[in-house]
Design a binder for these strands. Structure first.
Length: 504
RNA sequence: GCGGGAAUAGCUCAGUGGUAGAGCGCAACCUUGCCAAGGUUGAUGUCGCGGGUUCGAAUCCCGUUUCCCGCUCCA
């Protein structure tokens, strides 16, 4: 158990990182000069490099192999896609909250929590409040008359009908006490929590022109399954990888980049024979956590969180999250799911187009199973950033270092003339020009060299090259390593090879 | 969506009704001799935003936005 002091200290780590992120140009708040936009963030000069490097490493990991193809699907898709996927239906349920005890209820299941006696009392109270001859009362009476249900079920039926009526449900909720805490008049207005952003195709804002910003990139892969398979002549098992933005109209945003309304996903959907699902699921599960470790993320701060069978999503047979221990607690950075043939079957059903795969060996047609690896690029960014952040005491001063893996570091090498004279700047500029085509470099000749080192530490630059007096004599420079602060002398001619080797 | 806290220079913060401040950072020039510590000069604020009270508001009141924490939610 963590103490309050420990929690407080941990909380400040996020604050420090947010502060550093802004100061050094990793992350800015969106539309800051207008007061910001809730849950949206912009990646600055260093941030965009880090994010690109993360995505680049993922892309190479996924597609530099024989059995995975790349894809970049449109963000806007046919609205039927989201009906087939279940996103439209599953997330349009109106909800209410109890202001007293903070319980949340789905309006369509609220009836189950209210007993007969209470229902009767509530309906009567509603009718009384409306008054005789009122339209609403007549409507309620017609619910009774038209209900096919018998006996007690009839009351349930009517109660549910009232809840489904937009006007009557609001009125009835005023007479219904919270099933949990029993308080009266403590419900909020019913609200729909559809997580998808809507917009319109074409200039007319009408229902039939409504499309959604995708809430996940996966569906773009699923609907292109046969296109990709045919074009690439792949055979099962094979995967499709995609990186792209997705949008969810979250109720609450939270924890810096962790829960945002616009975010980026790195998804790879692996299509397999149904009987091989377990094997591939296990393989990908291990491969994905190893990826984070190989890029320097602290192994002790990574774990699996397997979803128990009774809490699986409607499409999943088996699921796990890769979680990172953020300062605010464990949080998912990637999900690995066995999605079965749910998605392709649904699209087959809704589109009327066969999504079956023909196996030449067994001469069988079937809808493949899908093993999904779905990583959050934005969340990974935050995890890598937080994980890299460190402070240490050096001669009584605090040294702030971002210990990025060299592959992820926004700037790979800083080139520093020790002093701005004796021809050192000229040599340093020459080195800069030679290295720049190969990697992101930064030239700095301002102020004392120690200060320049520290500035690079804060940006996470793994190597600093310093041109000094000895350079003038033997054409070597010092290569200063970020984490150890140790230096070695390397001949200028060997620099490129040396650095590339160091960055592996 | 509910409750609590916060918002003043790029960052960290002081400023309880009377001229907008400090440290660090940043920029220019000088000086340099390997880990943020020399010198000189300089820039930067609608005190989150909008109303109100007041002769006068960063300060008091109301609203609002954003961030953080807790609850809730997270297919």
């Amino acid at each position: 158990m963590r103490s309050k002091i420990a929690q407080k200290k941990e909380a400040t780590v996020v604050e420090k990182v947010v502060s550093l992120a802004k100061r050094r140009g990793f992350v800015f708040q969106s539309s800051e000069i207008y007061g910001g936009l809730n849950g949206c963030w912009d990646y600055g000069p260093l941030g965009v490099e880090l994010l690109r490097n993360i995505k680049e490493e993922w892309w190479k990991f996924m597609t530099f192999r024989e059995d995975i193809e790349g894809l970049d699907a449109s963000i806007l898709m046919h609205p039927r896609v989201w009906q087939a996927s279940g996103h439209v239906d599953n997330f349009s349920d109106p909800m209410i909250d109890c202001k007293q005890c903070k319980s949340r209820y789905r309006l369509d299941t609220l009836s189950d929590l209210v007993n007969q006696k209470r229902k009767k009392k509530t309906i009567n109270a509603l009718k009384e409040a409306l008054g005789d001859g009122n339209e609403g009362v007549e409507k309620i009476n017609s619910f009774f008359v038209n209900s096919d249900a018998e006996g007690e079920a009839k009351l349930d039926d009517v109660f549910e009908h009232i809840l489904e009526d937009e006007v009557l449900s609001r009125l009835m909720l005023k007479h219904l006490n919270c099933p949990n805490c029993g308080n009266a008049e403590s419900f909020t207005e019913p609200r729909s929590f559809n997580l998808m952003f809507k917009t319109f195709v074409g200039p007319v804002e009408s229902t039939e022109n409504t499309v959604f910003l995708r809430p996940e990139t996966a569906q773009g892969i699923f609907v292109n399954f046969l296109n990709v398979q045919g074009a690439s002549r792949q055979k099962l098992p094979f995967g499709i990888a995609q990186i792209g933005k997705a949008f969810r109209n979250e109720i609450n945003t939270k924890n810096f980049l962790f829960r945002t309304r616009e975010f980026e996903q790195m998804e790879m959907q692996y299509f397999v024979k149904p009987e091989d699902d377990k094997k591939h699921y296990d393989t990908w599960k291990e491969a994905r956590i190893q990826w984070f470790k190989d890029l320097g993320m602290t192994a002790e701060k990574l774990r699996f969180h397997d979803h128990p069978a009774d809490k699986l999503a409607h499409y999943a047979k088996e699921a796990t999250d890769i979680e990172y221990q953020f300062p605010f607690g464990w949080g998912e950075i990637e999900g690995i799911h066995n999605r079965t043939n749910f998605d392709l079957s649904k699209h087959q059903e809704f589109s009327g187009k066969s999504q079956q795969y023909y196996d030449d060996e067994t001469k069988e047609k079937f809808v493949p199973f899908i093993i999904e690896t779905s990583a959050g690029a934005s969340r990974s960014f935050m995890a890598f950033l937080v994980d890299a952040y460190s402070e240490e005491e050096v001669k009584g001063e605090t040294r702030v270092v971002l210990r990025f893996h060299p592959k992820l570091a926004p700037i790979k090498v800083a080139i520093l003339p020790l002093v701005n004279k004796d021809g050192m700047p000229e040599i340093a500029r020459k080195i800069e020009a030679d290295l720049r085509p190969h990697m992101k470099v930064f030239y700095d000749d301002k102020g004392a060299v120690g200060r320049r080192y520290r500035r690079q530490d804060e940006a996470g630059t793994p190597f600093c090259l310093t041109v000094d007096t000895q350079t003038l004599e033997d054409n070597t420079v010092t290569v200063r390593e970020r984490d150890s602060m140790e230096q070695e002398r390397i001949a200028i001619d060997d620099l490129l090879v040396h650095l590339i080797r160091k960055m592996k």
